[in-house]
Structure formats: structure tokens, C-alpha cells
Amino acid sequence: MPPAAPRDGPDLTTLAIETTGLRKEFGDNVAVRGLTLQVPAGEVFGFLGPNGAGKTTSIKMLLGLVAPSAGSGQLLGQPLGERAARAKIGFLPEHFRFHDWLTAEEFLTLHGNLYGMALPRLKARLAELLELVSLTPFRKKNLRTFSKGMLQRIGLAQALLNEPALVFLDEPTSGLDPVGRRLVRDIIRDLRAKGTTVFLNSHLLSEVEITCDRVAFIKHGEVVRLSDLKTLVEGETRVTLRASGLTPEVLAGLAELGHDVRADGAQVTLTVSGEADLPALARYLVGHGSDLYALTPQKLSLEDLFVQIVGTDGGL
């Protein structure tokens, strides 16, 4: 038996977030039907779903902003809404507006004070974080003068002040240019390296695909699918190939190597169980007298999966 592996993956023994049947009704309208979720500590967790799927309400329930109509949950081992857990949590709200008559420095000091941080530690963090989000030259400027991207970055710094164990990022890359988006990605990577749990709500699926370990797909306020992004990447692959001499016998043989075979003249698409099947596919065709001109694997992107799971109706 190998010795205990160094801690490079999520710590599966402790859960940062655990909910059972969280439900929220606003009058007759059910915003979240029943959210049951487990996020291990140290994981970067993506929360995906169409608009109106109840994502923001779900996050608000986790953070104690909105009281659930039913169900229960824990954050960092504390019941939802508990003050002790909030000391270890960072939160970047969606569509936030901060007190824009504060300077960047005053703004971070305010939030550090609310975390109850001691002054020396707060000062050190403040300098570190302003540097991290590249706003040091603007520290004395009023937030009112900040661009949307700068506000998003100062908001991110605010969410990291207390070196949280769990960070909620609600659309962290909205309003950011490509440089800003890369910054957010790098920050998330650093957080993961430090063992911080990240709960990421983003519409930018490509971002999620790069940064997250696991994703939950939400529809009508319920988790409809949990996917491990590593298996998603390594999993089923759709292949397009162009070849001549594709007799019915050859095509029938292809159905043994993969499934969902569709032939259109010289072009065939089929799904194989992984990249490892590709050489066998090529050998088979050549061995059965076909001339192979092209063989192109197409990874199932997160976007494809999203549309497959959520549907094109947007889940409404």
C-alpha cells in the first residue's frame, strides 16, 4: 500500500458546504426547489445553470442573506447563518455596489474592521491585496472614479481580506477584460494551492472549465447533474473522420468501436469512449481497405454539456 499521498487534491474528509433540501419560496414563486449539495474542503466548485435557475438565491441562502423556507445546511461545520462561520468566509456579490465615496484603502479598511482584523495584520493584508489586484497606484482614489473592472478587482480584494477558508465568487469575471479575467483565474489557482475552497458562480463556461474541479448544473433550483471536470475532459469523445471505401460492412464494424455512428457520404461521425480508442479506429479503417484522409476528435466542451443537460429552453 503506498504511503499517504501529499495533499494535492481536495480534502474529501471534511465538507466546506453541505446542504439538504434547501428551498426558498417567494410567495407562490418557488425560486429554489430543493438544493442538496456537498462541497469538500479545498475544492474549486462551479455552480452552473441558466438565468432564473435559482443560483443567486441559493448563494444567498448559503451566506445567510436569505432565510430558507425549508431544508438545512452547514458552512465549515456551522449551521447556515452562523456568525462564527462568517469570520472564515469571503464573498464577492454579483452586481454589487459598494460605498463609492470611500477610497480603495478606506474601503478595504472598513471591511477588515468588520472582520475584526487586528490593525497590523489588516495593514499588511491591505498592501498585499492592493498589489495582487494591481490597484496600489489607485489606493487613495475614490471608488466613484473606478471603472467597472477596477471595482470588480477591489471587490475581489475585499473577499480575500481575512484569508478565508471558503470564498464565494458570484460572477467574478463580469466586467473584466481578458487581462482581468486571467488575473481572476490566477487568484483562484493560488487559492486552490493554499487549500481554500472556492464556490464559483459564472456564466463564462470556458472560465469554469479551466478553473473548477467539479461543477453542479442547476435547473429549477435543483442539482440536476454533478460532473467531475477531469472525467469530462478525459471522457467520451466525438470523432469526425473522412475516408473513402466506406462500405456498409466497414460502417457496421465502426459501430463496434463506438456508438452513435452517423455516415454522410465520405464523412462519418461517431462517439468513442476516450482518446485511447483513436489509434484502433485508424488501424481498423486502414486494415479494412479504407483510405483515411482525416480523423478529428472533438472534445465535448462544458458548453455542449451545459446545453445537453439544461436544454435549449434555458430551463424555464
Binding site: L63, G64, L65, R83, A84, R86, A87, I89, F91, P93, H95, F96, R97, F98, H99, H111, L114, Y115, G116, G155, Q158
Partner: peptide, 12 residues
Amino acid sequence: TGTVQALVTKPV
């Protein structure tokens, strides 16, 4: 405006 969200999610 949602300004309050960043305040009440602090340990206060």
C-alpha cells in the same frame, strides 16, 4: 443597491 450584502456577510 446590494451594498448591504458585503456588510452583513461579515462576522457582525
